[in-house]
Design a protein around this nucleic acid. Sequence first.
DNA 1: GGAACTCGCCAC
DNA 2: AAACGTGGCGAGTTCC
Length: 489
Amino acid sequence: MHNLSIKMETTPTIKDAYSLFHKGILALSRAEMQGFRVDVDYILRKREFLQRKLERTEIKFKETDFYADWCKSTKGKVNINSSTQLGDYLYKTKGFTALKYTKSNGNGSTDDEALKQLNIPELDFLFEKKKIKKTIDVLDGFYNEQVDGTIHPFYNLHLVRTFRSSSDSPNFQNIPKRDEEMMTLCRRALFPREGHQLLEVDFGQLEVRISACYNKDETLINDILHGDMHRDMAAEIFMLDNFDKNNKGHKLLRQAAKNGFVFAQFYGDYYKNCAENLASNWCQLPKTGKWKYGQGVVIDEIGKPFKPYHISDHLISKGIKEYGTITKTERGYVVTGFLKHVQDIENNFWNVRYKKYKQWKDDWFAEYQKKGFFDLYTGFRCSGVMKKNDVINYPVQGAAFHCLLWSFIQLDAFIIENNLDSRIIGQIHDSLIIDVNPKELKLIGETVHKITTVDLPKHWPWIIVPLEIDAEICGVDESWVKKEKYDLV
DNA sequence: GGAACTCGCCAC
DNA sequence: AAACGTGGCGAGTTCC
């Protein structure tokens, strides 16, 4: 009885969830109305430039023997934009073995990753062309949607299964960022209002922290607050006895462990995919035969400038001499090599290191199977037929976004109440983009910091892990390209 | 001629 | 036993 009454007070209900979205829609619509300034002259200029570059790349491709042979095999009817036709030519006509297959139809995959493994240099022109085209599409999207030099991206709260948001017309949540060249070309089009500057505020490791609120795993919480789980996993996966955070190679391997193992595991992936991804995408190690010395990425150049040390040298010296295989026998699966190594690490990851997290996953799924639904900590209810991974991921993804949305609403209200000139103009799941009047920068920064790290955990007592917020700032009257770290307090 | 589908790729 | 979560959008293709 006692426990129940506490729960009633602190656990948000479906009405609270409704209220969050009601206020959320109103706040988001103010950002939509405000919009994001675009440099129309730049877009038109750069579009022309990219269009010509696209045509030149296309011409270069059409001059290759590869293209001539492709045309010959289809009696001249070739559309170089068609991955279906390319797949037919490579896998059916030329007899290349597909190294990857598509999900729904099981055809040989023609994505960049699959094609790059075929080692056909002429295809580089197609990769280049695809990249240019993608950039043109983003700029076109801005141009087509702008009204008097301002785009008004929409934010939807009614479309996503996890109760996250989506964005369209144009989609503001998938503007290139990681590819330096594409990032610069696209974000150079986006500006604050005159005399203002763009401030971007991000929650740090938000989804991992929210997952910890559900699973309450002490090791995970400790790692979030004081440790470095990506470094630890890099050390285990690549068998590094003394991880050196200043070593360029070690830094790369930490990245590999973070994206190829830790995040993948948190989303519900398993050792086979992780091993494959780590070996081929991150280390360029072959998946057949014994590994040779001098293969794969250079991981360590200390003291040996003319004799690079390769990842294969290191793994072989530690006894991992090949990628390995998975064989089915009457007794079960026999796993060898690097595959076995990653499988062991996976087992340790879930059965020892994050044991309580795993227990939560099993319990949470069992509860869903019993009831047919589950409730997020923010009051939203997910029901219907779901896979185990869905049941584990949705509550985290949704509640993490709700932290952002709640903060968005508070900051929006603060801006209106105080008649400020700054405006929130965008949102990308765990970040806010604010068009700031420089005179208000300090106030906005301090307010965002207080809302996200003090008020939010007070509002939702289920947030049992401290939240962290990072900010970056662009110069006055400058585009969204050059950002500097900004201390909010 | 358009709806529905697949695939690939960008973001988180 | 199963096996990476959520979107939007463009291009090609297939079906009606």
